[in-house]
Design a protein around this nucleic acid. Structure first.
Lengths: 310, 310
DNA sequence: CATATTTTATCAATTCTATTGATTTATTTA
DNA sequence: TAAATAAATCAATAGAATTGATAAAATATG
């Protein structure tokens, strides 16, 4: 195995200085160490590699064929390491943030959060993971995500939760005739398209109406909100869907809210992270940005809904 | 200045192991050091960079956003350094040899030496420097060349000389009429093309004939043997030139040796190096190859000259 | 649910490595 | 020929890395 690294960066640093100055004594002066330290460090380097790197010609050190090849390899690497150390010491805004979000948020909120953030901090990389609320929460707990965005409830004292917006579920159709005021029981037997089992949206909806209707006619289950929307457009059917995901279609008159009596199904958007998370500048800024953008977007939605009614 | 490198390879090694195992205790076991050594090394690394690289979530170390970015940078560099150390420890045939040769040798002998050598040792790089005998000798003395090939005499006790072949100067023309037997004084006033002042070939020739003729008619001076040859082909003139550089033209009947009475102007090809040169495997092999190839070539020349006469 | 186990952090003691200061050797310069 | 310069070497020392023991906190166990 070549696993053992005996070379040290100090040796390389001294070696590189000796190469460029060609004179042990001057190197020692420039580095504020003794001449013997330089001499012995070079010797140790040569011992590790098993053969000399310099020819000692008239008490001068002159790189030999091996030394030249070694120098060529080492120089760019050492420079890079110096840069890396400097960058990491001095730039607070360097890193990779792992964000997780549940389906609705991934599609409708994360793109603008991430784009806006990355415009301000181009050196920061973001990885985005999709999962349902429980999956995201679990990954926050075990540390495999830094920040999560979920709809609904999250339990566990080790998770810090922050309400960052709210999410209203609407019953929606593309068929204007269906959109008039009604009871939920009146429309339970219409053709419903819902998200798949396990989806937060679906479960909140079914839980919310379970007191009022025995069963609803689910004729199609789809994994993505966008697919549900395209089905709605092409078939006479209904769905219960997050308001934020249909705002533009409602405004454009492509979809219509069904005015179900006493239907107010609301839940929160939560931003979550682990209580032990180190609050790097990076992390703090990301939280800050997310709050800003979320509140802007929600204002935007309110505004356009208002305009729509007028 | 970002000149100061505080990070050590040990820290990086430990860091990388902790990242991949995620468990200080196991890392300590695998590396045969104590758990506290690992813990303190990580802490020191974080101190140097000024902020944590890990979140401590439930006594487990989980890379944070900064740590992830650092890991991404460091991992390939560390691997490369491990490879470099291994290669330099184990491969004798790695290096860069600086060869110098005087003009005739550069053109007529070095190409085949270098090609043959590099075919056997593809990892070895060779730089070839041209200069006159004195320049090459000086560079050997001060260590800026590893091996030199020169014609003629070299002085200095610090240089190890080895005769590696011999070089005969011939008077040559393209005009067959001129090639008949003659005294040097008979042809001194013909049109001569010689190498420029400072060239070994020129100086040896002029020195050799100075007893017998007062002056010769130098009508053109050129820096390269090849240029002299093309002039000879196109104009009625003479030159004194190294046999090795005109062997093929003599064989093909394009040029003719002028049969000057008592003209035997011989000198040696020398391979030289500094007495203090470290004899790496690389270096030793290069000397060996050069001897082999030189003697092959000189045999080849003798052979073809012999055939020519028959 | 208390107990044993696992795991990291911390501290003083210790070991090991890098560095020093003095000296020797060789070479160059004056 | 003497003075100056530069690298190598060695024992002494300063400085880092590592240890062993212990504390603190979480997880696993019976």
């Amino acid at each position: 195995m070549g696993k053992n690294m005996k070379l040290t960066l100090r040796q390389m640093q001294i070696f590189l200085n000796v190469v460029s100055s060609g004179n042990l004594t001057n190197v020692a002066k420039n580095m504020n160490i003794s001449q013997s330290a330089v001499s012995m460090s070079i010797k140790e380097l040569e011992n590790i590699l098993g053969r000399p790197l310099f020819d000692r010609i008239n008490k001068k050190l002159i790189l030999n064929e091996l030394g030249r090849a070694f120098h060529k390899e080492i120089l760019p690497i050492f420079k890079k390491l110096v840069d890396i150390e400097y960058e990491f010491k001095n730039s607070e805004h360097k890193g990779i943030i792992r964000v997780g979000a549940s389906t609705t948020i991934v599609d409708y909120l994360m793109p603008s959060i991430i784009c806006t953030y990355m415009r301000s901090y181009p050196d920061v990389k973001i990885t985005l993971k999709e999962g349902n609320t429980q999956e995201i929460a679990k990954m926050i707990k075990d540390g495999s995500l830094d920040i999560g965005f979920v709809e609904g409830f999250v339990s566990g004292s080790e998770i810090i939760k922050e309400k960052i917006g709210s999410d209203e579920l609407l019953v929606v159709t593309a068929d204007k005739k269906m959109s008039k005021k009604c009871e939920i029981s009146d429309i339970a037997d219409k053709r419903w398209v819902l998200r798949e089992e396990g989806s937060g949206t679906r479960e909140v909806f079914l839980d919310y109406i379970k007191e009022r209707v025995d069963d609803i006619n689910i004729f199609l289950e789809l994994g993505h909100t966008e697919s549900i929307k395209s089905i709605l457009m092409n078939r006479e059917c209904l769905t219960c869907i997050s308001k934020i995901s249909v705002t533009s279609e409602l405004n454009e008159g492509k979809l219509f809210k069904v005015d179900v009596k006493d239907f107010e199904c609301q839940r929160d958007f939560l931003m979550i992270h682990h209580k032990d998370k180190y609050h790097s500048a990076l992390f703090t800024k990301f939280l800050f940005f997310s709050r800003e953008i979320m509140s802007d977007m929600i204002d935007g939605i309110k505004c356009s809904l208002f305009l729509d009614k007028s």
